[in-house]
C-alpha cells in the first residue's frame, strides 16, 4: 500500500475552498490557461518559426495578465520589447537556418521521458509549496488606486526621493550604452579588412 505524505482529498477540498470565483479571478484563470497552452505549443511544435509565433502569443497573453494587475506600462513594455525582440529572432532564424520547413528536430523517446519526469516533479513541488500559502488567495491590494499609472510610474522611476529609482535607471542606461558601443566595435570592419 502506497502511503502519500499528505491526504489527497483533504488537499483537494482545501484547494476548492481557497480558489476564489470573482470575475477577476475567472479572468485570471482564462488568461493563465491560454498562457499554459501557448507555452506548451511553443515547445511541442517542430518548426522554429511556428514556435516563435506561439511564443509571441504567450508573451501577449502575459501582457494581458499585467493589465489585469493594473500595471499598464509594464504590459506595454512587455509587448514592445518582446514582440520586437521575437521579430528580430525571426529575421535571424530565416537568415541562419537552412531547410527551415523540413523535419528540424528529431526528439528521441528517452528524452521525452526525462523531460516529463522533470517537469512533473517541478509542478508537484510548486503545487505542494504554493497552494498551502493562505495569503495568495486572500491578500488584498494595499497599493493606492493609481499607484502604477504611467504618471506615477515615471515620477517614481526618475525621482530623487527615498522610494525612487533614478540611480539604478542611470546605471542600466550606461550599461545599455556600453553594450551598444561594444556591438558596433565588434561589427565594424578593421582598417585592413575588406
Amino acid at each position: 500500500m502506497l502511503s502519500l505524505p499528505f491526504n489527497v482529498s483533504q488537499l483537494l477540498s482545501q484547494a476548492g475552498a481557497m480558489f476564489p470565483t470573482g470575475p477577476m479571478d475567472i479572468a485570471f484563470y482564462a488568461v493563465a490557461f491560454i498562457i499554459i497552452v501557448t507555452a506548451i505549443l511553443t515547445v511541442v511544435v517542430r518548426n522554429v518559426l511556428q514556435s516563435a509565433v506561439f511564443l509571441i502569443f504567450s508573451f501577449l497573453v502575459t501582457a494581458i495578465l499585467y493589465l489585469l494587475l493594473h500595471a499598464e506600462f509594464v504590459a506595454l513594455a512587455q509587448v514592445m520589447v518582446y514582440v520586437g525582440g521575437v521579430v528580430i529572432f525571426v529575421v535571424f532564424t530565416i537568415l541562419l537556418t537552412s531547410h527551415l520547413g523540413e523535419d528540424a528536430f528529431n526528439v528521441r523517446i528517452p528524452k521525452i521521458f526525462a523531460a516529463c519526469t522533470l517537469s512533473l516533479a517541478f509542478a508537484f513541488v510548486m503545487i505542494r509549496c504554493i497552494l498551502p500559502v493562505k495569503e495568495l488567495a486572500t491578500v488584498t491590494t494595499t497599493a493606492p488606486a493609481d499607484y502604477s499609472s504611467l504618471h506615477n510610474f515615471a515620477l517614481r522611476l526618475l525621482g530623487y526621493g527615498a522610494d525612487s529609482f533614478i540611480i539604478p535607471f542611470e546605471v542600466v542606461s550606461v550599461l545599455l550604452l556600453m553594450t551598444l558601443i561594444c556591438a558596433i566595435t565588434v561589427a565594424r570592419k578593421g582598417k585592413g579588412e575588406k
Binding site: 499598464e72 513594455a77 509587448v79 514592445m80 525571426v90 504611467l150
Partner: peptide, 27 residues
C-alpha cells in the same frame, strides 16, 4: 487610455511581424 502613445509604439511591431511571416511562408 492614459498610455496612448506608448500603446501605438508597442503595437506597431505587429506590422513587421506579419510581413516577415507572410514573406517567409510563401515559399
Amino acid at each position: 487610455v492614459p498610455v496612448g502613445i506608448p500603446f501605438i509604439i508597442a503595437v506597431n511591431g505587429f506590422g513587421i511581424l506579419g510581413i516577415l511571416l507572410g514573406g517567409w511562408s510563401s515559399n
